[in-house]
Amino acid sequence: HNGKLCKLKGIAPLQLGKCNITGWLLGNPECDSLLPARSWSYIVETPNSENGACYPGDLIDYEELREQLSSVSSLERFEIFPKESSWPNHTFNGVTVSCSHRGKSSFYRNLLWLTKKGDSYPKLTNSYVNNKGKEVLVLWGVHHPSSSDEQQSLYSNGNAYVSVASSNYNRRFTPEIAARPKVRDQHGRMNYYWTLLEPGDTIIFEATGNLIAPWYAFALSRGFESGIITSNASMHECNTKCQTPQGAINSNLPFQNIHPVTIGECPKYVRSTKLRMVTGLRNIPSIQYRGLFGAIAGFIEGGWTGMIDGWYGYHHQNEQGSGYAADQKSTQNAINGITNKVNSVIEKMNTQFTAVGKEFNNLEKRMENLNKKVDDGFLDIWTYNAELLVLLENERTLDFHDLNVKNLYEKVKSQLKNNAKEIGNGCFEFYHKCDNECMESVRNGTYDYPKYSEESKLNREKIDGVKLESMGVYQILAIYSTVASSLVLLVSLGAISFWMCSNGSLQCRICI
C-alpha cells in the first residue's frame, strides 16, 4: 500500500475532517465546509473527530445509520420544511452556546429548535410527501429539559409530546424532565432520530412541544462500492481501485494482509504473511546465498510486491572476458508455465471484495464479540484455502523447474562428451581453451567436438587428477538461474548478450 488516501476510480472521497457522521448530518456549525458535499467514492472519518452533536445527546440507531450510509455515493440536500413558512405559530430561531460559531450562539444547520411564540405553543402538524424518486433521509430531535421551569419557559406545556409517523415508522416521544450533570454547559439533553422515507411515502410530524424540527433532508443515491473508513492518512493526487484505512492498494494479487476493511475492488484479506509461490528452483544453499535460486511470486499485497520470474541462460568467462545470454527457448517455456500457473491461482482465488467494518453500540458488546468470532472463522478458512492451494502448486513448480534445468544440462553434456569433466555440482571442467566463438557454439548447439578432442585428450593426460582450476583450465557451469522482474525479464530476452569482463582471468566458464 502507499499510505495515502486516493480517488477511487477517479472519484474523490468525502473527508469529514474534524467532524464525524453525526456532526455532518445534523449540521454542526463547525462542519459548515461539508454542506456543499454532493457525491463521493467513500467517506473518511478520523479516529478522534471532535465535532459531532454540539448540544449533548445521542443519535439513536447511529450504527444502523452508518451502515445505511456505507452504500450511499451521492445525496441532494434540500429544504424539507421551509423555515419561514412551515411554522407560522412558533418561534424557530432557537440557539445555544453549546453550538457556538465564530463566538456567537448558533444551532444545527439542518434542524430548527421550535419554541413557544408569545406565551403559547399551539399543537403543530406538518407533513412531507417524498417526490424525489429515491429514498429521503429525514432527521429530527426531541429536547429533554433539566427542570419543569425550563419546560414551561420554552414550550408552555408541561405534558408535551412529539409524534412522527410514516408508512414504515411510527413513534411517540415524551420529554424526560430530570436533573443531569452539566455537559457542554447544558443540564438538558437532546436525542436525535432518523428514518428513511421511501419514494411516494408521507411523513407526518405532530407536537405540542420539545420538537427539534427537520429543516433540511437528504435524497440518497446508492453506490455499492462506497463505504466509510476511519483513517488518519492524508489525501493525495492519486487514483486506485482499492482503498484501505492504511493506504491505497493497486494490485491484481488475490490476497492482502494490510487491513480487513477495504473499499472498492480489493484482494481478499488473509492473516498469512508467507503466502508465496515459487518460480525458481529448489533451494541450493551456495546459490541461494548469491540470490540466484528460489525466486518467488508473492500473492499477498503487503507481504511480497508483485511476481518475480526466474529465467535460464548461459554465463561464460574466458580470456576475452565474461558474458550472459538467455536461453530463449527454455526461458519462454518457463515463463509460459509460470504465467499459466499464476493465472490459474488468481482465477481460482481472485474475487474482488469490498469489506466494511460493522458498528455496534456499547450495549451490543456481546453481539460485536460474536460477530468478530464469526469473521475470524471465515478469515481462517480463507487463509487455509489460500495456503493449501499455493503449497500444492509450489511442489509442481519445483518439479517443473528441475526438468527444465536438467534438459539444459543434458544438452551441454551431450555436446562436450569427454572434452570436459562433470564435477558433480552442476559444473563441467573443460580440457581445452574455449574462446567466445567456442562458447557461442555450446550455447547454440553447434559445438565442434572433433575440433577440440585432441587438445582435450592431451590435457587429460597431463592433469592426472590435479585440480583443474589450479592448472588454468576452464570450467563450464551447467545450471544457472538469475532473477529478474517481469519487465526486466522481457528486456533481457530482447538482448543477445551483455558482457562482464574479468581482467586477466584465465578461467573459461559457460553457465546455464
Rank of each mutant, 00 (worst) to 15 (best):
K268C: 06
V261W: 07
R396T: 13
I296K: 03
E364H: 09
N436D: 07
A325G: 01
M500K: 07
I510S: 00
P260I: 01
H401G: 05
I308N: 02
P450T: 08
V345A: 05
K241Q: 11
K341F: 00
M471N: 13
R366C: 07
N350R: 14
W382Y: 09
K341C: 02
M277S: 05
Q256M: 10
D402M: 10
C427I: 01
F299S: 03
L403C: 04
Y480T: 06
V483I: 13
N404E: 04
K358T: 06
L493G: 05
G494M: 15
T482H: 02
P267C: 08
Q475G: 15
A248Q: 14
W499D: 07
R282W: 08
Y474P: 08
C501A: 14
C434T: 14
G504I: 02
D464W: 00
A355I: 10
T397N: 06
L506M: 10
L493A: 10
E387P: 03
V412G: 04
V488E: 02
S251V: 02
T244S: 15
I338M: 11
E368A: 14
I284E: 12
D380Y: 07
S272P: 01
F360H: 07
R460N: 05
F400P: 10
Y289F: 14
T482D: 05
E410H: 03
L370P: 11
T351R: 13
S502I: 04
W311A: 03
S485Q: 07
S231V: 11
L489I: 12
S502E: 13
R443T: 05
L506N: 01
N404L: 10
E387M: 09
C434G: 08
G426I: 14
C501Y: 04
E455D: 14
K433Q: 07
K373P: 02
L489A: 13
M277N: 08
F430M: 09
V405S: 09
L403P: 01
V491L: 01
H316A: 01
G357V: 08
N371E: 07
N385I: 07
H315S: 03
A386Y: 03
E265W: 02
S414K: 15
F293S: 04
T244M: 01
T273V: 13
